[in-house]
Measured scan of single mutants.
Amino acid sequence: SEYETMLTEIMSMGYERERVVAALRASYNNPHRAVEYLLTGIPG
Rank of each mutant, 00 (worst) to 15 (best):
T5W: 11
Y37R: 04
P31E: 05
R25G: 06
M6S: 04
G44M: 12
Y28A: 15
T40E: 10
I42Q: 09
S12G: 11
S1Q: 13
N29F: 11
R17I: 06
A34T: 04
M13C: 07
I10M: 07
P31A: 10
M13H: 05
M6P: 01
S27I: 05
A26L: 11
Y15W: 12
V35F: 07
M6Q: 04
S12L: 12
H32C: 13
Y37G: 02
T8M: 15
L38G: 01
E16K: 06
G41E: 10
V20R: 00
S12C: 07
E36K: 08
G44S: 12
S1H: 11
L39T: 09
E18F: 08
I42R: 08
E18P: 06
M6D: 03
L39P: 00
M6A: 06
R17P: 03
T8R: 15
Y37F: 12
M11D: 00
Y3F: 10
N29G: 14
Y15E: 01
I10Q: 00
L38I: 04
A22I: 09
P43A: 10
S12A: 15
E18N: 09
P31Y: 15
E16S: 14
T40V: 09
E36D: 07
A22K: 07
N29I: 03
G14C: 05
R25H: 10
T5S: 12
I10S: 00
R25C: 11
A23M: 03
V20C: 04
I10Y: 04
R17Y: 12
T40N: 15
Y3A: 03
Y28E: 15
P31N: 03
R25T: 08
P31Q: 09
S1A: 13
E2H: 12
Y37E: 03
I10P: 00
A22G: 04
N30F: 03
R17N: 03
I10K: 00
T8I: 14
E9P: 01
M13I: 05
E2L: 12
Y37D: 02
V21K: 08
S27F: 08
S12K: 13
Y28P: 03
A26S: 05
M11W: 04
G14I: 04
R19D: 14
R19V: 12
L38T: 01
S12R: 12
V35S: 03
V20S: 02
E9F: 15
T8V: 12
L24T: 00
R25W: 07
E2Y: 12
R19L: 14
T40P: 03
R17V: 05
A26I: 10
T8N: 14
N30M: 05
E9W: 15
M13V: 03
G41P: 06
N30K: 04
Y3M: 05
H32K: 14
E4F: 10
G14W: 06
N30A: 04
M11Q: 04
Y37L: 13
H32N: 10
A22L: 09
E9M: 15
L38N: 00
T40M: 14
G14N: 02
T5L: 14
N29S: 05
E4N: 09
Y28G: 15
H32P: 06
L7W: 03
G44A: 13
Y3T: 04
P43G: 09
Y28C: 15
L7I: 15
E16I: 07
G41D: 08
V20W: 03
E36A: 09
T5F: 11
N29W: 14
L24Y: 02
E9T: 14
A22N: 07
I42D: 09
L24D: 00
R25K: 14
I42Y: 10
A22M: 08
R17T: 03
E4Q: 10
R33V: 15
A22H: 07
L39R: 14
H32R: 12
E4D: 10
E16C: 12
L7S: 01
T5E: 12
M13A: 04
M11S: 04
I42L: 12
G41R: 08
L39W: 05
A26Q: 07
M6L: 10
A23S: 03
L7H: 01
H32M: 13
Y3P: 02
S27L: 04
A26T: 05
S27H: 06
H32F: 13
E18H: 10
Y3H: 05
H32L: 15
Y28M: 15
T8G: 09
M6N: 06
L24H: 00
S1T: 14
A23T: 02
R19S: 11
E2I: 11
S12M: 12
R19Q: 15
Y37T: 03
Y28R: 14
R19G: 04
Y15G: 00
M6Y: 08
S12E: 09
M13P: 00
T5K: 15
Y3I: 06
N29P: 04
R17G: 03
T40D: 09
L39K: 14
S27E: 03
L7M: 06
E4S: 07
T8Y: 14
S1C: 15
Y15T: 01
T8D: 10
M11P: 00
V35E: 03
E16P: 14
Y37S: 04
T8A: 15
R19H: 11
G14F: 05
V21H: 05
E4K: 08
R25I: 10
Y15S: 01
V20E: 00
L24N: 00
G44R: 09
G44Y: 10
T5R: 15
V35H: 05
N29M: 10
V20Q: 01
S1V: 12
R33S: 07
E4G: 06
R33G: 06
T40I: 10
L24S: 00
P43H: 09
G14Q: 02
S27P: 00
P43K: 08
V20I: 05
A23G: 01
A23P: 00
T40Q: 13
E2D: 14
I42V: 09
A34I: 04
I10R: 00
V21E: 12
V20G: 02
R25Q: 10
A23H: 01
N29K: 04
P43T: 10
S12P: 01
N30H: 05
E18C: 14
M13F: 06
S1L: 13
P43C: 12
R19A: 15
E4W: 11
L38F: 03
E9H: 13
G44L: 13
L7T: 03
T8S: 13
R25M: 10
R17K: 08
V35G: 02
L39F: 06
L39Y: 05
E2R: 11
P43V: 10
S27C: 10
I10A: 02
R19N: 08
S12H: 08
P31F: 15
Y15V: 02
R17S: 04
P31I: 13
G44I: 13
I42C: 10
P43N: 09
Y28F: 14
A26V: 09
V21N: 03
V21M: 10
T5G: 08
Y28K: 15
R25F: 08
N29Q: 06
E18A: 10
S1W: 13
R33T: 11
V21P: 00
G41Y: 11
H32W: 12
Y37A: 05
P43S: 09
P31W: 13
E16T: 13
E2A: 13
S1G: 10
M6E: 02
E9V: 13
N29E: 05
A22S: 07
L7A: 02
P43W: 11
H32E: 15
L39D: 06
I42E: 09
R33P: 02
S1Y: 12
L38P: 00
H32Q: 15
A34G: 02
M11I: 09
G41K: 09
P43Y: 09
G44W: 12
R19W: 09
N30Y: 03
S1E: 12
Y3N: 04
M11F: 04
P43F: 11
V35P: 01
E16D: 13
G44Q: 13
Y3R: 03
N30S: 06
R17M: 08
S27Q: 03
L39G: 05
V21G: 02
T40S: 13
E16N: 08
I42A: 09
L38Q: 00
L38H: 01
A34Y: 02
V21Y: 04
M13Q: 06
A23Q: 01
S12F: 06
A34Q: 01
S27M: 07
H32D: 14
E2F: 11
Y37Q: 04
T40R: 12
T5C: 08
M6G: 02
V35I: 15
V20K: 00
R19M: 14
L39Q: 13
M11L: 06
G44E: 13
V35C: 08
T8W: 14
V20A: 07
E16R: 05
Y28D: 15
Y15C: 01
S1N: 12
P43R: 08
M11V: 07
Y28I: 07
G44T: 13
A26W: 09
E18Y: 09
E18L: 07
A34K: 00
P43L: 12
P43D: 10
L7Y: 03
L38Y: 02
Y37K: 03
Y37P: 00
R19I: 12
S1K: 12
G41Q: 11
E4M: 11
L24K: 00
A23Y: 02
V20D: 00
T40C: 14
P31S: 06
S27A: 15
E9K: 13
R17D: 02
E2V: 11
S1F: 12
E2Q: 11
E36G: 05
G41N: 10
E9N: 12
Y37W: 10
E9G: 08
R33Y: 08
E2W: 14
S12V: 06
P31M: 14
E18R: 06
